[in-house]
Simulated scan of single mutants.
Amino acid sequence: MHRSLYRYILAHSRRQQIGLAGLTLILALLQPVPLELQRRALDDAVANSDLDLLTLLCGLYLVAIFGAAAVKFGVRLWRDYISAHVTRSLRDDTYRNIYTEHCPPQYRKDDSDSVDDGAVVSILSNEVEKLGGFAGDAISAPLLQAGTLIAVLGYMLAVEPVIAAIAIGLYLPQFVIVPIAQARMNRLAKAKAEETRDLGDFMVDEPDDSLFNHDPPDKFNSMSDRIRDLRKSFVLTKHTMKTINNLLIALGPFGVIAYGGYLAIQGEVQVGVIVAFISGLERIGDPIRDLIGSYRGIADARMRYGLLRDSFEGGEVSGPGS
């Protein structure tokens, strides 16, 4: 199998990923349109009591909302189709690595030539499904989130640079905190996966007569304790990072309202700008959370793919679509 998860995904879905990326960029570029329509509706139509302009802007707003919804539907559907295709390819490659190629020792029964069906079923139904499900989001999801951030922040900087800079300054610490916390979570997740696999191997290798009617062996207890401690460390890191990120996201609207309100009172900006910016921050908050989630998902998928790939003997295996 390919050494890189992304190389594997692109080998089996390159054309689909390119098309999906194009549709995703269209969706990202549509995000600032409702913000500008909101601003113009308040500052141009409502402020000047222009009913015709208000009707036109509201109509365009509905067109933009429904258009974005249609494009988002297409993006989600295309992602799931790609996931289904890559999952099928992963199952085929897993089958060939176990049954057609030289079967790895961990998939044999009692070091014999027969295959451990339970281990194979677990791989095909669990690991392959998770990796295949990631394939549709692998490129499109972070591209949409990053594209939305760039488009909305670019619009805000163009309309009112100072207020936008304050909002950006409140969000910047996340891009320092997340990589540090995620690196620790990656190490913990990998250690937990390896420890869980070792526990499974221990239970398979241990003779039945040493387990029946006996307390759990010391090795079983120590490995179970280790898995528990790794899980506790993982969730502590995850929830600490999530709490800090949510707090920073919540501070964004505060900065806009505080400084933007001051400028509005001084007559330096219009109220429509502040309303549009608050809506823009709401549109930024979700992509930031999703981008963090994508970062975690990519790390987790790479870890899972590495474990699956390393469990097969040999290097890359060529197959259909490779």
Rank of each mutant, 00 (worst) to 15 (best):
R3Y: 12
R7C: 12
Y8F: 15
S13F: 01
Q17R: 00
Q17S: 12
G19Y: 01
L20T: 06
A21K: 04
G22T: 02
I26R: 05
L27S: 08
L27A: 11
Q31K: 11
L35W: 05
E36K: 10
L37Y: 02
L42G: 07
V46F: 09
A47R: 10
D50R: 03
D50Y: 04
L51V: 13
L54E: 04
L57P: 04
L60C: 11
L60D: 00
I65F: 15
F66P: 04
G67I: 07
G67D: 08
A70K: 06
A70S: 09
A70H: 04
V71D: 03
K72T: 02
R76C: 04
L77Y: 14
W78H: 14
D80G: 11
I82V: 15
R88T: 10
S89L: 00
L90R: 03
T94W: 00
Y95T: 07
T100K: 08
P104K: 00
P104W: 01
Q106Y: 08
D110E: 15
D110V: 12
D111T: 09
S114Q: 14
V115I: 15
V115D: 07
D116S: 12
D117L: 15
D117N: 12
A119W: 07
A119V: 12
I123R: 11
N126K: 12
E129D: 11
E129R: 10
L131A: 05
L131Q: 02
G132T: 03
F134A: 05
A135Y: 05
P142L: 07
L143M: 10
A146G: 14
G147S: 12
L149Y: 03
L153W: 13
L157P: 09
I163K: 03
I166F: 06
G169S: 14
Y171I: 15
Y171D: 04
P173A: 07
P173C: 05
P179A: 00
I180N: 06
Q182S: 09
N186K: 09
L188V: 05
A189P: 05
E195R: 05
E195H: 00
G200C: 08
G200Y: 07
G200V: 11
D201N: 13
F202M: 13
M203S: 10
E206L: 13
S210H: 12
D215N: 14
D215C: 12
P216Q: 10
N221K: 14
S222Q: 14
S222I: 08
M223P: 01
R226M: 13
L230S: 07
F234V: 02
T243M: 15
I244R: 02
L248C: 09
F254C: 13
V256M: 05
V256F: 02
I257A: 14
I257F: 08
A264K: 01
A264G: 00
A264C: 09
G267M: 03
Q270C: 06
G272H: 06
I274Q: 03
A276Q: 06
F277K: 02
S279I: 09
L281D: 03
I284P: 01
I284Q: 02
I288S: 05
I292G: 04
R296T: 04
D300L: 10
R302N: 14
M303F: 04
M303P: 00
R304E: 10
R304I: 00
Y305D: 01
L308A: 07
L308T: 07
D310A: 07
G319C: 01
